[in-house]
Write a protein that binds this DNA or RNA. Structure first.
Lengths: 218, 218, 218, 218
DNA sequence: TATGAATGAGGGTTCATTCAT
DNA sequence: CATGAATGAACCCTCATTCAT
C-alpha cells in the first residue's frame, strides 16, 4: 500500500506524460487509433483515468504529439547520418536522406503504419507556418498536426542554401518528393506491393533526381 | 406476371440500396466516416434501421461499395473522354487521363476528400488480382477494398498493349503514377498547398512523362 | 425458376411443419434455445419467414411440440422393448424401462440435453390432466407443456393394474422415480459427474426398488 | 486518514454491488431471467447503466453471484440450526438439514423458483473442486456456477467424518440426496403437485435414509 | 398457402468525461 | 497533482412480427 503510493509519487509529471505517450504509441500501432480507447491507454500506462486529462485534451491530441515527435525523430536521425558523410552534391544528399528514412521505416513497420497516413504535406506546412497553433482534432480525417519543435523544413532550407546551385519553387519540389516517397513506400514496405522496397528504390531515386533536375535554375 | 412482380421488388431493392449509398456518401463527405453513424444514415435515407442490415454488413461495408463505385466512375469517365479524342501517343493518353481525373476531382472536392485516402494501390491491386474476394473491413485502417466490377486496370493494360512501344514493369510504372498524382492532388486541390492545382499540373505531367520514359524499353 | 416453384409446391403442408420441427430440434440441441432465432430455423429449413407463423405461434410453441414428441417417443420405445420381454414383476419392469431410457439418452446426449430441464413432472401431469390445453409459453421458465397424444401415464397405469400387487399413492411413487432418475442422469451422462452412468445405475436401480417397496400395500 | 477514505469508498462500492444484486434478484424471481434486461435492473436499482458493468460482466454473471450467495446462505442457515440441536446420528442430522432447507424454501418460494433449476450438482462440484475458476457463462444452458466462498461440501465432509460410521462413495451419496430432494421439492412446494410438501416429506425422508443405508460400510 | 422485404423497438455494450475525494 | 467510481448518451445490431404481393 505504502509501496504503491511511493511508486506513484516517484513518477513525476514528465514521466507520466511520457508513459502515456509511449503506451499510446504502442497501442495505436498495434490496435489502431480507432480501436484504442483512453481507458486502454491509462490502464496500460498505470495511471488513473483523470490523469490523462491533465496532459492531453483527447485521443487525437496525444496522437498529434506522437506524430510530430516521431516524424521529427525520423528526419533528424537521417540528417545526423548525413552529417557523418561528406556527400557534396544536393541530389545525393536528398537521396541519402530518403534512403535513410526508408531504411528506418523498413526496420520499424509499425512506425510506418502509424505515420504513413499523416506524414504528408500537412505536417511540414504546419510546422513551417504555424508551429504553435492548436486545432480541434477530434476527427480522423484531420491531417493538420501540431509539432512543437519541428524543424525539418529548416534543415531542408539549409541544405538548399548551402548548395551552390539554384532551384525554383523549392517548396513544390520538396512537396513532390515527400508525397511520392511517402505514398509509395507504404504498400511497398508493408505489403511488398507492387514490389518490395529494394526493387522500388532505384525507380524512386531516379524520380527524385528528375524532380530536382526539373526545378534547377540553370 | 410473376416475372413482373419479381422485377418490381428487385427494382425496389435496388432503389433502397442506392438511397442508402447516396445518403451515406453525402454524410461521409460532409461529416466524415467516423462521425457518421448508421442511425444518421437510415434516418436521412428515410428507412428503418434494420433495413440497413439487409444490404450492408456495417458502416465500412457501405464505404467500400462507395469507393469502388466512385473510383470506377471516375476512371471510366476519363477513359470515355479519351475515346472521343484521337490522341495517338501513350504518354499523351496517360497525361490526358490524369488531367481529366484531376479536373473531375477539382469540380467535386467532396469526392476527392472521400476517396483520396483510399484511392491508392490497394484499390487497383485488389481489383486486379482478386475482384471477388470478400474481406473483413471492420476497421478504419484497412485499405484493401472490394470492387465488384472495377476494370480500370484492364483499361490500362489495353492502352499499354495498343501502343507500339514496350514498357518494362508496367505495374510499378502505374503504381508510381497513381501514388504521385493521388497524394499530391489532395492538398493541392483542397487547400492550394503548396500551390494550386493549375500551378502543380505542369510539374505533375512532367514527372508522369519521366516515369514513362524511365520504364520504356528501347 | 420453374424448378424452384415445383420443388416448393411439392413440399406439402405436413412436410413443411416437419421440416421446421426437425430443423428446430437440430438447432436447439446444437446452439441452445436462447441462441436460436426463428430466422435461423426458417433459413436452415428452407422456408420463408412468414411460413413459420402459419404453423407455430413462436419459438416456445415449437419447443413444446418437440419436447412432447421426443419424450413420448422415448417412453414408447422403452415400452415396446419391454413388450418383447417376458419380465413378470413390476419392479423389474420399471427398472427395465428406466434402464432402457437411460440407454437411449446415453446414445443421444443432445436429446438428453434438450429434454433434461423439461422432462419433469410437469410433462406427465400436463399430459395426464389436460392434454389439449394451450398456454402462453413465451418464457424460458415455463415447464408446462402441450403434449398432443402423450400417453405414458396410461402405460404406467396399465403396468400397475396388470400387476397383482397393490401400491398406495402410485402418482407420488412415479413422481419420485421420474424426478430422481431424470435429475441424476443429466450430470452423470453428460459430464460423468460425480460418476459415469454405469457406475450410477446400480445405485439408481436400488433406490427405484426402494421407492416401490415403500409404496407397496402389504 | 487515507485509510478512512479508502474504507468509505470501498463500502460505497460494496453497497452499489449489493443494491444491484438485490434488485436483480427481485426482478429475476418476479419476471424471470430472460425477461429481465440490464436496463430494468439499473433503472430499478437507481444507478447508471455503465455502473452495472463496473461490477458484473453481464446478466449471467450477476445471476451466478446470486445463486452462489443464496445457496450458501440456505445451507449455512440449516447448518447453524443443526448446531443448536444435539442430534447425534448422521441420518438424523442429514434429514434435519433437508427438512430445514425445505422449510426455508417453503417460506420463500421465489428463492426456490430462482435456485431450483440451478441448485444442482454443478454448484457443489464447482465449489468443491474449483471454487476460484471463472467461466464464460454467457448462455442460459450453463449449469456450472461460480461460488466464491461456497463451503457446504466442507460442512458435509465434516458431518461424515464426525460420525463414527463409515460410508462408501460419499460423493455419490450426497449427489443422489441433493438431486432427489431438489428436483422433487420444486413442483411439490410451488404447485402442490403431485402432493404438497408436507405429504411428500415422509416419502422423501424415507428415501434419504435408504440412500444413506445403502452406502454404509458395515 | 406462401413469401420475404421491411420494420423499429429494444437489447447489450462502450467510453469520453466529470468531480468528489 | 492525482485518483477512479460514476455517469449516461450514443452506439451497433438483432429479431420477432407484419403485410402486400
Amino acid at each position: 500500500m505504502a509501496n504503491v503510493t511511493l511508486k506513484k509519487s516517484a513518477i513525476n509529471k514528465r514521466q507520466k506524460k511520457e508513459a502515456l505517450m509511449n503506451t499510446a504509441f504502442e497501442l495505436f500501432t498495434s490496435k489502431g487509433i480507432n480501436k484504442t480507447s483512453i481507458s486502454d491507454i491509462v490502464e496500460k500506462a498505470g495511471v488513473a483515468k483523470g490523469t490523462f486529462y491533465l496532459y492531453f485534451k483527447d485521443k487525437y491530441d496525444i496522437r498529434n504529439y506522437l506524430i510530430s515527435s516521431k516524424a521529427e525523430q525520423l528526419f533528424l536521425t537521417a540528417h545526423k547520418a548525413l552529417d557523418t558523410t561528406k556527400i557534396p552534391e544536393i541530389e545525393d544528399q536528398i537521396v541519402f536522406i530518403v534512403d535513410n528514412c526508408l531504411n528506418q521505416l523498413t526496420e520499424n513497420p509499425s512506425l510506418l503504419n502509424f505515420i504513413s497516413k499523416n506524414l504528408s504535406w500537412g505536417v511540414f506546412k504546419k510546422a513551417l507556418v504555424d508551429p504553435e497553433s492548436e486545432s480541434d482534432m477530434n476527427t480522423m480525417d484531420m491531417d493538420e498536426l501540431d509539432s512543437e519543435n519541428f524543424s525539418f523544413y529548416k534543415i531542408y532550407q539549409y541544405l538548399i542554401n548551402s548548395s551552390d546551385r539554384q532551384f525554383k519553387d523549392p517548396e513544390i519540389m520538396l512537396f513532390m518528393i515527400i508525397e511520392l516517397v511517402s505514398s509509395t513506400c507504404y504498400s511497398s514496405i508493408l505489403y511488398s506491393e507492387p514490389c518490395n522496397i529494394d526493387e522500388l528504390k532505384p525507380h524512386l531515386f531516379k524520380q527524385v533526381r528528375h524532380i530536382l533536375e526539373d526545378h534547377e535554375e540553370v
